[in-house]
Write a protein that binds this DNA or RNA. Structure first.
Lengths: 340, 340
DNA sequence: CTGAAAGCGCTTACAG
DNA sequence: CTGAAAGCGCTTACAG
């Protein structure tokens, strides 16, 4: 039905090998004369090689699979979109196609695992698997070349890339403490996410450095979501004023924007009454009523690293170890010196 | 390297044909006895068929390609995400894999066209091509089975699915006019989008029905973006109060939320001073300072229709004609009777 | 510089 | 009910 390499060969009076050589620029050289003739026929017949046949033959589809959990649009986490975006751009640069695998929950990904290793993709990038998900372990077991973004694992044959969570959270917490705040709260995301525990560590270390007593550094677990930030902040605001934190650090921008909304709904001001910080620097951080002081994740760097490391793995170069990239403190309007 | 159907055949002492029969449940029957033996070997060797080889043989990858333009995360249009989401869910239901093709601009999609028809995908879904983009025409020319979402085209071999834009805009405009408003403005999106012209038609028809004079129904072109809605509304608010519209209809929720922000920044109230309506019912509509009255697009229906129509085409069933689904008026807090 | 041939891992008429 | 064989459309040693 559609034209094949065989048609081109026949029409230009050469073998299909020769057609393949000119199409791929190798592995054998072809005389300029023949090359020209073949190319003319290719154009005339509007021929396009079949990627599937090519893939089967070369055992390489030049396609990267991306696994992440299903996002309900209403609870879209911009972090995922931002990372995804960084990865897709990098794929384009590296001439790789991409296939998205979406599931509602991480426990569904395990059942779909044969999809991930059926030859359609050369390798897999997993975005943000929680600690209690063994998908990555299973991929490693099947020897599927895998890169993980958003979690550092000590898994052989798996490369991880992430921002330096401990340091980043440490930096922004110290920014807050340097402003004179002495009663602070940390609103975390889901505790089964490594980013949550790592950022908590960074927060605690900063509080240690500033000798903040335990009772003045509250850590409140929740979800990486606006409503979760809102609810927890409302609870905090019920504390007697002398016990209430003057600064709230959130482990992402969504939580922070919820915190800001709660503070304003209670008739208080950000940052004059209470300072708030975020993490990620996604759209929420700027769109929020009060532009949020936050740690910027270098999404295009993260995506670029993920893709290029995966490609290295596919090329058989044994690149071991994880990639940690720094985050950047972005100071906006949601932080100010502690009220007198 | 990895185990193939040949390994299974050898290990279970049958031919590869037989292995294929039990794997696919056909086309030939296999005795329960042999079936059991083969399956045992499959499990023992953890065998997974190679989808690429299968695809080449069957000339069907069970994969749908999705084309849309690159979204900069900061100007993310939730409409695209919502449609995308609807399509991905439908793909899962129909056991289809999906490949995303992203480009920055529609004029880049034409150059990538050979990617779209290289056998990797069985068919293509295009989301929201502008009027002046001939990608769909080119796909049709190459006989690539194609479904378009968000634009109705009279292109042979192409199926289109969209919401009933004229009626939907007509409905929400009449909602506003029924509230007594007699000076209204329409803030549209990019005029090269069919949705823009269609919604303008619906708006005008409603104004006609209510005999609104031309000078009291302003149509202002712009972009489907929050900042564009903000800027145009600010301009409108410079009008002398007696000429100023008491209701602003936007052709999407992003524009509407910009309009609301502008109105509030000018110290006016929504809806008491000015009513505002949106379109789409995406996250913006609820997250906005004032929950927006809008037309809800049935995203999962749109996605489901797109996928099932494409699959019908792939099965050779000639389904012609376009699919129009209704939108639903969602009344929230941004509309109220005209101020006395 | 060019070509005949084997092979990638499957599916599926065709024959028994 | 089972198998031998051709074929899907390419790539790439191997030979000339």
């Amino acid at each position: 039905m559609s034209t094949t390499i065989r048609d081109i060969a026949r029409e230009s009076g050469v073998s299909i090998s020769t057609v393949s050589y000119v199409l791929n620029g190798g592995p054998k050289p072809v005389s300029a004369h023949v090359r020209e003739r073949v190319n003319a026929v290719v154009r005339r017949l509007d021929y396009h090689p079949n990627a599937v046949a090519r893939g089967l033959s070369r055992r390489r589809m030049d396609t990267l699979g991306i696994i992440y959990t299903y996002w309900d649009v209403n609870t879209t986490d911009f972090y995922f979109l931002s990372v995804l975006h960084g990865i897709l751009s990098a794929c384009t640069r590296h001439k790789q196609a991409s296939t998205l695998f979406t599931s509602r929950h991480w426990n569904e990904t395990a059942t779909a695992i044969s999809q991930y290793s059926d030859g359609r993709c050369d390798g897999i990038i997993v975005i943000g698997p929680p600690d209690d998900c063994n998908l990555v372990h299973q991929l490693a077991e099947r020897k599927v070349p895998t890169v993980v973004v958003n979690t550092m694992l000590e898994q052989t044959h798996v490369a991880c890339v992430d921002v330096d969570n401990v340091n980043a959270m440490n930096t922004i917490t110290k920014h807050v403490l340097s402003l004179g705040h002495r009663k602070v709260a940390l609103l975390t995301g889901e505790p089964n996410m490594q980013s949550c525990s790592l950022r908590t560590l960074g927060f605690q270390a900063a509080c240690d450095e500033f000798a903040i007593p335990d009772e003045d550094r509250r850590v409140i677990e929740g979800q990486y979501r606006t409503d979760s930030g809102y609810d927890r902040t409302m609870k905090l605001l019920e504390l007697p004023v002398e016990a209430r934190p003057t600064a709230i650090c959130a482990t992402n921008d969504a939580i922070a924007s919820g915190a800001i909304a709660a503070i304003m709904d209670r008739g208080l001001r950000v940052p004059y009454d209470i300072s708030v910080t975020g993490f990620d620097d996604v759209a929420d951080a700027k769109m929020c009523q009060v532009p949020i002081t936050t740690m910027r994740q270098p999404f295009s760097v993260l995506g670029g690293e993920a893709v290029s490391r995966l490609i290295h793995m596919l090329n058989g170069e044994t690149v071991v170890g994880n990639t940690i990239v720094p985050a950047e403190l972005i100071i906006r309007d949601s932080t100010a010196p502690r009220p007198a």
